[in-house]
Design a protein around this nucleic acid. Structure first.
Lengths: 247, 247
DNA sequence: GCGTTAGCATTGGCACGACCATTGGCCCGC
DNA sequence: GCGGGCCAATGGTCGTGCCAATGCTAACGC
């Protein structure tokens, strides 16, 4: 009741939170680099003066954050991980699960981002990138012929990742991969649809890339995506996130 | 078809991975909703037929994934969390830490996204959104006058979140918040800079919004960001976020 | 009658100790 | 020299016990 001054939090952080924070800090300061090995659980427990269980809970947090990978057996231990974009995807996907993001939101945001990616990729892509994209389309065509619908759909999704790579922007690659991980789920849950138009669209897109016609490429991609999204939104998307704010 | 039969991974998943998967699945299927309470650790241990320690490690994973929050004491337990975009930010930030994403990549990607956000926001924003943006600018101006550099910088960063909100796209809001969380670190680590031009830019931007001049707004934002980024890139930005501030 | 307080039951936080499965290297025997 | 088996290191799991925080409730005092 009395004027309580701004006492320090005075909150004793949970022990494993403290451990996580310390290791995270070591990483941020560059004192730990990918590939480095942390001491064994026993040793860590001793150094932090906590029980091995507590250390393990901390390691669990670091592990799911994608910061470390665990290997068991002799010579095993906790190693600073190489980057794994899948972690971002998972967390994004988790967050969306708990929030009221509608399918319309996802497709819309995707359309925006994809447009700029196509534009930049068209301007910057090297022959290697173009070859990779062409190979992807070829694979999708073959899978279509083989009737392997699922793998064809996955190939079509992968196309966009390659596109993001072609921008030469690593962050954009990561973000696109996160989006595409979600798309994968959506596509697979929607199931086979009449998407033969996509193969043709892809070929026209490649042609635009070869001609370095950014405007044309963007237009082509937007046409393709709008058509696809309309197809999804018209059907009953089983995901519970049917805000259905179709505008 | 050929020699490689797709053997089942036959992976004996770690026990807590299995637990995490099961709970995640319950969530995905909508059988668990935000606010719901999971059984106590004791009870979970019994149901999963594992020790309490194992359950705790699983809960730790779910916790840092932002899926649950733990409360102790009577009536406590594990509760399905409300969405927390900060989780995405953290994982994105972690991934970037382990990757070779340059500051140039970040600023570039940001410029791309921000452009489309400004355009859409300009077209869609309501008076409420406009008022919120104006209030933010006003606050930043006052903080500038008060010489409170840090809080002024944070207000400037927050502006972009409000902008993303104005697009009405929840996913875009989340992604922007992730980017801005990183920006916060960068801005604070760079330290005070001569950024008085930004306040004027913000005011011009608001004017463009009021006039519903999307092209003008985008141009203004791009000018502002380019100038800001040039300022950063010219200075010595330490690849590591070296902001050992209290937080 | 009503607010206050002391207790109590619930639940997460943490410690200690033990055992198992896997892994990789070392040593032995051929 | 080489192959195979033993062994130590290390993560994975278990079980128990205790502490600290929390919320409910019944006893208490005015």
């Amino acid at each position: 009741m009395a004027g309580e001054p701004v006492f320090q939090p005075a909150r004793p952080r949970r022990a494993f939170d403290e451990i996580v924070a310390q290791i995270r800090d070591l990483l941020r300061r560059g004192e730990l680099k990918p590939g480095d090995r942390l001491p064994s659980e026993q040793s860590l427990a001793a150094q932090f003066a906590v029980s091995r269980n507590t250390v393990r809970e901390a390691l669990r947090m670091l592990e799911i954050s994608g910061l470390i990978t665990l290997r068991k057996g002799a010579g095993g231990g906790a190693f600073i991980a190489r980057s794994d974009p899948a972690v971002v995807s998972r967390s994004l996907s988790d967050t969306l699960q708990l929030t009221d993001v509608s399918l319309a939101d996802i497709t819309e945001a995707r359309l925006w981002i994809e447009s700029v990616v196509v534009r930049v990729a068209c301007e910057r892509m090297t022959d290697d990138h173009l070859a990779a994209l062409a190979a992807n389309v070829k694979e999708a065509a073959e899978l279509t012929g083989a009737g392997d619908w699922e793998r064809k759909a996955l190939a079509h999704v992968e196309f966009h990742n390659l596109l993001a790579d072609a921008t030469g922007n690593a962050l954009m690659s990561i973000m696109m991969r996160s989006l595409m991980d979600m798309m994968r789920d959506i596509v697979l849950s929607v199931g086979p649809t009449r998407t033969d138009f996509m193969l043709n669209s892809r070929r026209r897109l490649l042609a635009r890339f070869r001609a370095r016609d950014a405007d044309g490429a963007v237009a082509e991609m937007e046409r393709c995506l709008r058509r696809l999204h309309k197809l999804w939104l018209s059907g009953a998307y089983p995901g519970s996130r049917t805000g259905a704010r179709a505008d």
